[in-house]
């Protein structure tokens, strides 16, 4: 049930097991990506770390720029607010790839 956030960038996929839910090919990560916009722009992202296998831990410089509704609309499965400016985005098995793109 993972919505398409980004294309699998060729090879090197560490999840070997066959998935029961097919994952659609992700779109290329660019600044104009709705996800990045929802986070308030690339410059607003202080850090993006891949943690806990399925998550990207985001730290934003200005939390007020976060648009939660837009964020949910990009298809992020789950979203947790840890503290103002600190969030977990539940992405799924491709979380690591997204984190790299957002750094």
């Amino acid at each position: 049930m993972f919505s398409s956030l980004f294309k699998k960038l060729g090879g090197g996929d560490d999840t070997a097991a066959a998935s029961s839910a097919p994952v659609a090919a992700p779109a290329a990560v660019r600044s104009e990506l709705p996800l990045v916009k929802a986070l308030g722009g690339k410059s607003n992202i202080r850090s993006a770390t891949h943690i806990a296998y399925t998550r990207v831990r985001i730290e934003l410089i200005n939390p007020a720029l976060l648009d939660v509704i837009a964020l949910r609309q990009t298809g992020v499965s789950g979203f947790c607010t840890i503290a103002p400016g600190v969030y977990h985005l539940i992405i799924g098995v491709d979380a690591g790839l997204l984190a790299k793109e957002l750094e």
Partner: peptide, 13 residues
Amino acid sequence: EMDKVAMKAVSLL
């Protein structure tokens, strides 16, 4: 504690 465990453990699943 979600953040603490997420950062230390392999996964929160």
